[in-house]
Amino acid sequence: MLVTRTNLTDLAYFLAIARHRNLRRAGLELGVSASAVSHALKSFEERAGVRLINRTNRSVTLTSAGKALEESVSGSFADIGSALENLDQLRASPGGKIRINAVVDAVTLVLGPVLAELSRRHPDIEVDLVSSNRIVDVVGEGFDAGVRYGGTVPEDMIAQRLSTDLRWVVAASPRYLEEHGTPAHPNELRHHRCLGVRLGDDSIYRWEFEGPDGDFDVPIKSAMTADDSRSTLAMALNGAGLTFGLEPLFAKHVADGTLRLVLTEWITTGPGFYLYYSGRRQLPAGLRALLTIAGELKPLG
């Protein structure tokens, strides 16, 4: 086959399928639909006169010809990608698109100001941000990077710190405390209306504390449950109950008196936010710029 623009494009589609073994995920990486990936593959196989992929309703596997093609061209395409990314570094302002998956609180507390500054400095960088507390495979789902709390970053990823370690606190509105009293010990939470946060695996987050004997957690019976702390914060501000979360998330409300911290003698500190990415590919210019700005601004220290 001749090396044409069409064949090079189809090779890129084929390699994305080979990496992910999934048409939808390949499409996410390439920024196209799964049907577009399927159509490109079919056309490529027809021109080549050989089947490269075996597809069923449940799996995508490489044929022997597909495996041979992947082994032959994957290294060359990786070299081309690295060369293009190196060129991007020589531009006065980096560009391109980066996809980031981040826990919700990281978007509110860290990425918001950092991405705003990234946009001002590098308007050619396009950011696709997905905020969710659901744990995802960032590589498999087509993301360039993820942002999580330090203790939850997969071990096979390269991690860069975005914040200092963070304090976790319990807060409530003055109205709620006047009506229901103020707990003096974490064990008293079972007598209060607690606002729970649902984790990505559908479990309810156990509130964490530190006492004379070390760290411990307390299961709560949620009066109301939400998917993220922004929702429970909104309910707490209106007197719905006690909420648990990062101290910086509540700071301005504590300062203006609309929230009060309770159980302050039992406050615990946990790992801060980290940005993480696969070491199997060169770091995109947009992520390098984001990390530089985060290091300069230090939104949470």
Rank of each mutant, 00 (worst) to 15 (best):
G49K: 02
D256M: 03
T292M: 14
R175N: 13
S231N: 03
G27R: 04
Y276W: 11
L177E: 14
L129S: 02
L2N: 04
N54S: 14
K67S: 15
D201Y: 02
L177D: 15
P113G: 00
R120H: 05
V50T: 12
D202T: 01
S82C: 07
A65K: 04
W207Y: 12
L283A: 15
T61H: 03
G95V: 09
G112K: 10
I158E: 08
D213T: 10
E29K: 06
P94M: 13
R134Y: 01
E247A: 13
E85N: 01
L237E: 11
S72G: 04
E141H: 09
S72N: 08
A294P: 13
T108S: 10
E265T: 09
V50L: 08
G27W: 03
G196Q: 04
S38C: 12
V60D: 02
A234R: 07
P248K: 01
R121Y: 06
S93R: 10
T258C: 06
E46D: 13
T63K: 01
Y149S: 14
G272P: 14
H39F: 14
G151D: 06
R120A: 03
R288P: 03
L177F: 14
P212H: 00
G49F: 12
S74K: 11
G49M: 09
S72L: 09
G286D: 02
L291E: 02
L41T: 14
D202V: 00
G96Y: 05
D227S: 08
D144R: 05
T164H: 11
T232Q: 06
A92I: 11
R19W: 13
H20T: 04
T182R: 11
F273D: 03
R190A: 05
H185V: 05
A12P: 02
G214L: 02
S35P: 10
R260F: 06
Q89S: 15
S132V: 08
L118V: 03
V153I: 15
K221V: 07
A285L: 13
A294F: 08
R280L: 13
R21G: 10
L290H: 07
E71G: 09
A34D: 10
N7G: 00
R51C: 10
L242F: 05
A26E: 05
M157T: 00
V218G: 04
G49L: 06
K67G: 15
Y205R: 12
R51W: 15
G211P: 13
T164F: 09
K221W: 10
G257A: 01
M224R: 13
P113M: 00
S35E: 07
S119D: 07
E29D: 12
L233P: 08
E70R: 01
H39N: 14
V127P: 00
I125G: 07
L62C: 14
L259T: 00
L261M: 12
G241C: 11
N86M: 14
